[in-house]
């Protein structure tokens, strides 16, 4: 970084070294060292999780990724169920959250009167501020009973009868399970997706929208024909950001997913995710045990998945970041 420093302080090459140059070197060095520290952190997370998971990777090999067994007594562990649960809940959450987030962003940028936009926008953003554990308690004590009493029986009676997709909506209505976990996740990631969509919708040059309105387009036609095509890459980035968040959510999911190590065909069935397994089983794992190593290996897998998703999100959002 000495280059940038000399560029500014060295504007007068003939001048003697000024008193500030030592201070400059120290300050620039501290800033750069802090930057390097952040890189070390990420590198450290990858390396430590991998080292911790190494015994499990060695013991089970590649089949660890899809094996559905999790038997602490005979020390056989597989990540299949929790990877499946992680991806299914996160994808379902995206399916629920994206239309809602679009509605919120559409309302905040085009529909709501200007005086209402700020308070409503803040309220939606506060959803992101509520801690994960609060969502967990709320989901477990309020939403899960509601699901068991009203939503799931209704779904079983209506959609459960259909051929094909009916199988998704069958089984005893416990209230907890994959569907409830996905629903809570959807509410948690809604503000992240909505905020990104609102920001990029606002970046569309007004002239484009005005031209479309001038042609007689309705508000929805302007959104569909002008705003969405103009912003679709950033919108995809926002969705990926939400997906990344949903994959790693721990406490809320732990409360409502039912925590069973099996893959069920019905969405009402219990399951688990990587994060919920790690949070729950960690307390019962002894230091140095193969089980602990399997949990760290799960952590490594979750890290790789989230890294890919978050890096994609950032790549898609790069134009917004620059603008």
């Amino acid at each position: 970084m000495s280059q940038a420093t000399t560029m500014t302080t060295g504007a007068r090459p003939a001048a003697p070294r000024r008193a500030g140059s030592l201070g400059d070197a120290v300050f620039a060095g501290a800033c750069q060292a802090a930057g390097a520290f952040v890189l070390l952190l990420l590198g450290g997370i990858i390396v430590e999780l991998f080292i911790g998971g190494l015994p499990a990777f060695r013991a089970f090999g590649l089949p660890f990724l899809w094996s559905t067994e999790w038997d602490p007594v005979s020390e056989v562990f597989g990540a299949g169920v929790s990877i499946y649960g992680t991806i299914v809940t996160a994808v379902l959450a995206i399916i629920f959250a994206v239309p809602l987030a679009f509605g919120v962003a559409f309302t905040l940028t085009e529909l709501a009167p200007p005086w209402l936009r700020r308070p409503v926008g803040t309220a939606v953003e506060l959803l992101a501020a509520v801690p994960s554990i609060i969502y967990g308690m709320w989901g477990f004590f309020l939403i899960a009973p509601l699901m068991a009493q009203y939503v799931q029986p209704t779904l079983i009676d209506s959609l459960g009868e259909l051929p094909g997709i009916g199988g998704l909506f069958q089984g005893p209505p416990f209230g907890t399970g994959i569907l409830t976990a996905a629903l809570i996740l959807a509410i948690m990631i809604l503000p992240f997706i909505a905020a990104t969509m609102r920001d990029v919708f606002e970046q569309v040059p007004p002239v484009y929208k005005e031209s479309a309105y001038g042609l007689g387009c309705t508000t929805w036609e302007v959104m569909r024909g002008v705003v969405l095509p103009y912003t679709r890459i950033s919108v995809a980035g926002g969705v990926m950001l939400g997906l990344g968040r949903a994959l790693g959510e721990t406490m809320a999911v732990t409360f409502v997913i039912g925590n069973a190590n099996r893959i069920t065909t019905t969405l009402f069935g219990p399951g688990n995710t990587i994060a919920s397994v790690v949070a729950l089983e960690f307390g019962e794992s002894e230091t140095g045990s193969l089980k602990l190593s399997a949990l760290l290996a799960l952590g490594f897998i979750l890290f790789v998945i989230s890294f890919v998703v978050l890096a994609t999100s950032r790549y898609l959002l790069r134009s917004r970041l620059k603008g």
Partner: peptide, 25 residues
């Protein structure tokens, strides 16, 4: 650019993994 990218990843990385990392460390 790399520092900015890594910091943004850390911003959204699952917090449970940061717990596991500190446990190991």
């Amino acid at each position: 650019d790399v520092v900015r990218f890594v910091s943004d990843i850390l911003l959204s990385a699952p917090s449970i993994l940061i717990g596991l990392f500190v446990y190991q460390l």
